[in-house]
Design a binder for these strands. Structure first.
Length: 351
DNA sequence: TAGCCGTGGGA
DNA sequence: TTCCCAAGGCT
C-alpha cells in the first residue's frame, strides 16, 4: 500500500459503504445501524451459510423462503430433515443444509436459542468455519473480528500488490486485513470490504476509476491489478457417464431414493441410477420393459463433468422396491430435487 | 493437507 | 463452448 500513513483506508471504505451499501434482505442499512438497530443473529447466520461459495443473487430468494417458513432458530431446529433439504435443493453444497439443521438444534438445545457472540464459541458450531465465525461475530454483534473471504483476499492482494499465490499467501493477506480492521463499526467495515470486492474490485476488469481506495492501491500503481490475486492452477475435470431410471405408476407415483448423508448430493432426493463412471452401465433396479429417452442430461459438478442417459417405464399400481421410496403424485415437488436430478425430470417430462 | 463438495452467471 | 469463480467447511 502506498502512503499508508496519509490515507485512512478503513474510513474511506466506511464512507463509501454509507453511500453505496447494497440492499439485502438480511442486512441492516448503515443509517439504521447508526441509529442503534442491531441485526438478528439468526438471519445473519443463515445468510452467511447460504453465501458460502454462493452469490448474493442466488441466495436472495432462498433466504426469503427459509425465513418465511422458519422465522426463528427454534422453528428451524424443529423442522424435519427432508423439508430442510427440499428447501435447500438447487443451492448446492448440500452438507451446508445438513449442518444448518444440526447447528440450529445445538443453538436451541445447548445455548437456549441464542447465538453465541464470540469467534471461538461460533467456531465450535457445525458448518461454521473461520470465515463464518468472524462474519457473524462482526456483523451480528459488531465485534472487531477480521473476515477473510475471497473478496477480502483479492482486495488485500491488490492494495498491497502481493504476488505470492493463494492459498499459501492467506496468512499474509489476513495480517494486512487485520491491520486495517477498525475498532469502530467493524461489522459495517466487514461488509464494506466485501461489497467493494463484489462490485468494484472484481476478479476481472476491476473498476479502479471509481474505487474509493484507488489512491493507496499498490497494484493500481504497478498496473498489476488484473493479475491479482495469483492462484495455483486447477486440475482439469474428467468426464463421467451414468444412467438414471424414472419409473412412474399408473396412478402417478414415482420410485425415488434418498441419497446417503455422506458424499455427493448427500441427503438429497433423487432418481435411482447406475454408478457414475466410465465403466459399463448397470442393470435397472428391477426387471421391466425400459425405454431409453432421446437426448441426454449434461451437468458439471465441482470436480467432474457428467453425461446421463434417462430410462423410463410405467409400473403397475402398488409396485414397491427395497431401498426405494414410493413418492405419491401429490407429495412430489420437482423443486425438492438437486439440479442434476431436476434436469433428468425435465427431460423425462418433455418427452 | 489436499481432495471433496453444486450451481448459475458472466466473459 | 468453455472456463472461471462466488460472503468456505469438513475430513
Amino acid at each position: 500500500m502506498r502512503d499508508s500513513g496519509e490515507f485512512d483506508v478503513s474510513s474511506a471504505l466506511l464512507d463509501w459503504y454509507d453511500r453505496h451499501a447494497r440492499e439485502m434482505p438480511w442486512r441492516v442499512a448503515p443509517a439504521d445501524r447508526a441509529a442503534g438497530v442491531m441485526p438478528d443473529p439468526y438471519r445473519i447466520w443463515l445468510s452467511e451459510v447460504m453465501l458460502q461459495q454462493t452469490t448474493v443473487a442466488a441466495v436472495r430468494d432462498y433466504f426469503v423462503r427459509f425465513t418465511t417458513r422458519w422465522p426463528t432458530v427454534q422453528a428451524l431446529a424443529a423442522a424435519p430433515d427432508d423439508q430442510v433439504m427440499g428447501e435447500w435443493a438447487g443451492l448446492g453444497y448440500y452438507a451446508r443444509a445438513r449442518n444448518l439443521l444440526k447447528c440450529a438444534q445445538v443453538v436451541t438445545e445447548q445455548h437456549g436459542g441464542t447465538f453465541p457472540d464470540t469467534y471461538d464459541a461460533l467456531l465450535n458450531l457445525p458448518g461454521i468455519g473461520p470465515y463464518t465465525a468472524a462474519a457473524i461475530s462482526a456483523i451480528a454483534f459488531d465485534r472487531p473480528e477480521t473476515v477473510l473471504d475471497g473478496n477480502v483476499e483479492r482486495v488485500m492482494a491488490r492494495l498491497f500488490d502481493i504476488h505470492d499465490p493463494l492459498p499459501g499467501s492467506k496468512p499474509q493477506l489476513k495480517k494486512h486485513a487485520a491491520a486495517l480492521t477498525p475498532a469502530a463499526r467493524p461489522g459495517d467495515y466487514a461488509q464494506a470490504v466485501m461489497d467493494l470486492g463484489a462490485t468494484i474490485c472484481t476478479p476481472k476488469s476491476p473498476a479502479c476509476g471509481i474505487c474509493p481506495v484507488q489512491a493507496p492501491c499498490a497494484a493500481r500503481a504497478a498496473g498489476t491489478q488484473s493479475d491479482l490475486p495469483r492462484k495455483t492452477p486447477k486440475k482439469p475435470k474428467p468426464m463421467r457417464y451414468g444412467h438414471v431410471y424414472i419409473a412412474q405408476s399408473d396412478n402417478g407415483a414415482f420410485l425415488m431414493e434418498r441419497r446417503p448423508d455422506k458424499g455427493l448430493l448427500g441427503g438429497m432426493l433423487g432418481w435411482p441410477g447406475s454408478e457414475w463412471s466410465d465403466g459399463p452401465a448397470e442393470a435397472p433396479p428391477f426387471p421391466c420393459e425400459w425405454q431409453v429417452l432421446p437426448g441426454e442430461v449434461r451437468h458439471t459438478f465441482t470436480h467432474f463433468h457428467l453425461i446421463l442417459r434417462i430410462w423410463t417405464t410405467t409400473l403397475p399400481v402398488g409396485w414397491s422396491h427395497d431401498d426405494l421410496i414410493v413418492m405419491e403424485k401429490h407429495a412430489f415437488r420437482p423443486s425438492d430435487l438437486p439440479t442434476v436430478m431436476r434436469k433428468a425430470y425435465d427431460l423425462w417430462r418433455s418427452t
